[in-house]
């Protein structure tokens, strides 16, 4: 067992894990942050997407030990002061989710897309950038709409911060 410590959603946390423990399992099982999901075993569905040091990563593809000392944000940590993150609000507003299982990963990946591209996103770019996240329910139509709609709002919020 190894001891790991990291910042998760703004709080310093630590725990004992096996060397082989994946970050996603540390988040879900040790910290009870079950919003981050596991949808595959080959790093292809994106249900486990979180932010590590400000970048979207697949938490099923990283060992908890590798996350030592990093700053992690999960789906539970993006709403501030009880207010939804613009991307969360856009997913609701545009019906970008059905069963909700892919949704946390989709939202975390989408925030990262906007972080990298800013508000001048077009449909093709969003579709291309979402390649690492699978949704079986929505046909992506409304997810794409949500990301495009949120792009402007997210930039505004960041400018204000």
């Amino acid at each position: 067992m190894t001891k790991v410590a990291m910042k998760v959603n703004g709080r310093q946390v630590s725990g004992e894990v096996e060397g082989r423990t994946l970050l996603v399992h540390f988040l879900r099982e040790n910290l009870g942050l079950t919003g981050t999901h596991v949808g595959c075993d080959t790093t292809q569905c994106g249900a486990c997407t979180i932010h590590m040091n400000g970048q979207a990563v697949k938490a099923c593809t990283i060992l908890a030990a590798q996350a030592e000392g990093t700053d992690i944000v999960t789906i539970e940590g993006i709403a501030t002061g009880g207010e939804l993150h613009p991307m969360q609000a856009a997913f609701k507003q545009h019906h970008g989710l059905q069963c909700g299982f892919c949704t946390p990963g989709m939202i975390m990946a989408s925030i990262d897309i906007v972080n990298r591209h800013g508000s001048d996103l077009d449909e093709q770019t969003v579709r291309h950038e979402l390649e690492g996240n699978i949704c079986r329910c929505t046909g992506y139509h409304n997810i794409v709409k949500a990301v495009l709609a949120a792009a402007g709002a997210q930039e505004q919020r960041q400018a204000a911060e």
């Binding site: 879900r28 079950t34 919003g35 789906i75 539970e76 969360q88 997913f91 609701k92 019906h95 946390p104």
Partner: peptide, 19 residues
């Protein structure tokens, strides 16, 4: 009407069997 159930899913509070 926007969905009542969305809030828990978009905030990571959905409760699935494995949770």
């Amino acid at each position: 009407v926007l969905r009542k159930e969305d809030k828990r899913f978009i905030t990571g509070k959905g409760r699935y069997t494995d949770d």
